[in-house]
């Protein structure tokens, strides 16, 4: 009950911050349009399919999740920097209430973001004579859930560890890493070498790959990616929950 009430408050904070609309909702949509325009200028012979809408949409969906991470991070570090948390520390709030109270509204934000991203993608698909199968879209949304948890976990982790000032900086580094090594803007599979190995060890490539492959209907090696992703999200999330709990307890010394 306390967790739900705290969630409601976090949700209101998100909804009343104009930056949420710009980054969490507006930015992914803008990127969809820009990359679609870029794709129109890539000659057919180049054999470059990354920016075609079926492959672009899942990439942008994961890109959008990295902004949910930024928001989770800013919210936690901002709360920690004000005396508002003192009030909650003297209340009967437990660390688990804080953790779910931050996670639930962020998951909900992520969900709305994905719906909007795919809705716009379907519209773009119409113009290019590409249609999305509803069942695959739903499976793709499901495949994005562990990715959402992973990014929210990162957000909580950075938000607990970093100050309000340092938090956005570190998050933008992670966002860049996600973009480059996640294979959103470039074809990681054709890379080879050490860089490809790094990509495969990190979870971001798998988040994008799993969503893409599920949407394409060719399930191929989706299992491996989803497994790696699940493993990472559980680990990062547990680590974040642990660190947040430690931080709260340390604040109380």
């Amino acid at each position: 009950m306390r967790a739900l009430i705290f969630s409601k408050r976090t949700w209101k904070e998100i909804m009343r911050d104009p930056l949420s609309y710009i980054f969490c909702l507006g930015f992914p949509v803008v990127m969809l349009f820009i990359m679609t325009a870029v794709n129109k200028n890539i000659p057919e012979e180049a054999g470059m399919h990354l920016f075609e809408i079926q492959s672009l949409a899942p990439g942008i969906a994961v890109f959008g999740l990295s902004f949910v991470m930024l928001f989770a991070c800013i919210q936690v570090s901002k709360d920690r920097s004000t005396a508002f948390l003192l009030r909650l520390y003297v209340s009967p709030m437990k660390p688990s209430d804080f953790i779910s109270g931050y996670t639930l509204p962020m998951l909900w934000t992520a969900f709305l973001q994905e719906i909007i991203t795919f809705f716009v993608s379907i519209m773009i698909g119409f113009t290019a004579d590409v249609s999305f199968q509803p069942i695959r879209l739903i499976l793709c949304l499901a495949a994005l859930i562990p990715a959402g948890l992973l990014f929210i976990g990162f957000g909580l982790l950075f938000g607990s560890l970093l100050s309000e000032k340092a938090a956005p900086g570190i998050c933008s580094v992670v966002i860049s890493v996600v973009c480059f090594l996640g294979g959103i803007w470039m074809d990681v599979d054709s890379l080879g070498g050490t860089l490809a190995k790094i990509c495969h060890v990190l979870p971001f490539y798998h988040a994008v790959h799993a969503a893409r492959i599920v949407l394409s209907g060719d399930f191929g090696d989706a299992g491996t990616s989803i497994f790696v992703l699940l493993l990472y999200s559980v680990l990062i999330f547990l680590l974040a929950a642990f660190v947040l709990r430690e931080k709260i307890q340390k604040d109380l010394r």
């Binding site: 009950m1 306390r2 009030r87």
Partner: peptide
């Protein structure tokens, strides 16, 4: 407690702040 630094949720209204705390206390 009313802490030394005023601690209110800045993006909530006055009424929402009060309701929030009442809710947290069950």
């Amino acid at each position: 407690l009313s802490p030394q630094e005023t601690s209110v949720a800045s993006n909530l209204t006055v009424r929402e702040n009060l309701e929030f705390i009442a809710g947290i206390y069950g």
